[in-house]
Design a protein around this nucleic acid. Structure first.
Lengths: 242, 242
DNA sequence: TTTAGTTGACTTGTATGGAAGTAGGCAAGT
DNA sequence: ACTTGCCTACTTCCATACAAGTCAACTAAA
């Protein structure tokens, strides 16, 4: 007999530590919009649902709170955060800054094997253009991660992963808003510039690539206003003393 | 009677939730090298020390583990992480990428009030050149935070705070390794470039500023090898499959 | 009808006991 | 002398019980 509990496709293995698994499951469910913004996440309810006690659920909440995905209001309840428009813009800014420097570093180094790996990934991406956008997002994440690790910056990618979730939530609301073929073309451009060691070209291409979300973000927000927290430009007012 | 517990200068307020307070206290103690690398952090011992139960201590550990400050080995013990040399380099890289873009943004905008605030901070910094380096670190953090918030990127700064701790640990081992007056001069340069709207100048000045740690880092590691985890260049081997 | 006060069923925060696993000491057997 | 197996004292992880705060509905009086 298997010691597994299956809840709506999400599996939990009781042989290993439960807390980190719950963390991953809940994070994924939030990012994929399975758990909607402002919905309650009751500790005892989720505990019963997954067949564990409140403690592991609670510990998962702590991590998700630090990532800005849930908001726990003491003695009141825990809720899925709405998508923070300003946080998305901030995440995008950080990614542009870091990843443009990453490709600049790659373009100034000698990285033959990496190019081969990236080309292989590009061909895989082209195969799923017409397929499920979810699959493309997986390949897209892998592509950007490969660039980071290839530059010897694996730990920087871990950091970026945390803030990327803010952008991913936007993508998962409306897949059709993203022109996948255009994104793949940009990926190809980036690899080309790295291969021919054109530093500024690679940098600019990555910056342009990561600015794509700025086109769709206002549309997405207009389509699903209930999913969003606040408008752009409000960040300054949040810290009035500076 | 006050509901406070004082342990070696660290105060805990039982009227508010203790978990986040413990988080902050332990994080600060680790960064300031009060809790040495590889020392045990026993749940029941710390619980008794701060007059709380083991659960809040445990929840604090979870956050610190996610920040890479402690390592919890199941059924074995929780230990203060050694300083990860590669993580410091990664944190530095990310900071350079993001903060250089921040000052570039500031230099391309109109920010008169911000300049005044920064000038005031500079004069404060000059006053503590001969004073305690700890006080300067506080002002230094405030300076960089002000730049981020001034650019409307407060949330980006919160991201950076998390990785900055890796660099701060290095600084707290040996204060004298840092020539404070030189750093203040660089701060001044950055403000000058922002004021005269020289984008590339501001960017380059910030990059040079954040590369200072590269000079002292090898020396610090040579002086305190026991505080460090691994050497530079090992990051690639950690992910051999890419 | 309106409004103030109270009760009670929720929520999260904390405390504590037990389960599972690890590491080291010690003794018996080879 | 060296290995092997058990046994004890730890650790973190999970489950459960209790405490404290919040909120909504209900009651009762104006």
């Amino acid at each position: 007999m298997l010691d597994l509990v299956d809840v709506e496709g999400w599996v939990l293995d009781h042989r290993k530590a439960v807390s980190p698994q719950l963390r991953a499951i809940l994070r994924s469910r939030i990012i994929r919009n399975d758990l909607r913004p402002m919905s309650r996440l009751s500790e005892p309810e989720l505990a019963k649902e997954y067949g564990v006690s409140r403690q592991p659920v609670r510990e998962a909440f702590i991590t998700l709170m630090n990532e800005g995905l849930v908001e726990v209001r003491p003695q009141r309840g825990t809720y899925v955060c709405k998508i923070d428009y300003d946080a998305v813009l901030n995440a995008r800014f950080v990614r542009e800054a870091v990843e443009s420097d990453i490709v600049a570093k790659l373009a100034s180094e000698d990285s033959g094997d990496l190019i081969k790996e990236l080309r292989a990934q590009l061909s895989m991406q082209k195969k799923v253009v017409k397929g499920s956008p979810e699959k493309f997002m997986e390949l897209d994440e892998r592509f950007h991660m490969t660039l980071a690790i290839g530059a010897g910056l694996a730990k920087s990618w871990r950091f970026l992963e945390g803030i990327k979730s803010q952008m991913d939530r936007v993508r998962f609301i409306t897949f059709e808003e993203f022109h996948i073929s255009k994104l793949i073309g940009q990926h190809e451009q980036i690899v080309d510039f790295i291969e021919q060691k054109t530093v500024s070209g690679a940098e600019d291409a990555m910056r342009a690539h990561l600015r794509e979300i700025l086109n769709s973000l206002p549309r997405v927000r207009a389509l699903y206003p209930d999913h969003f927290e606040n408008s752009p430009g409000e960040s300054r007012e949040e810290n009035p003393k500076l």
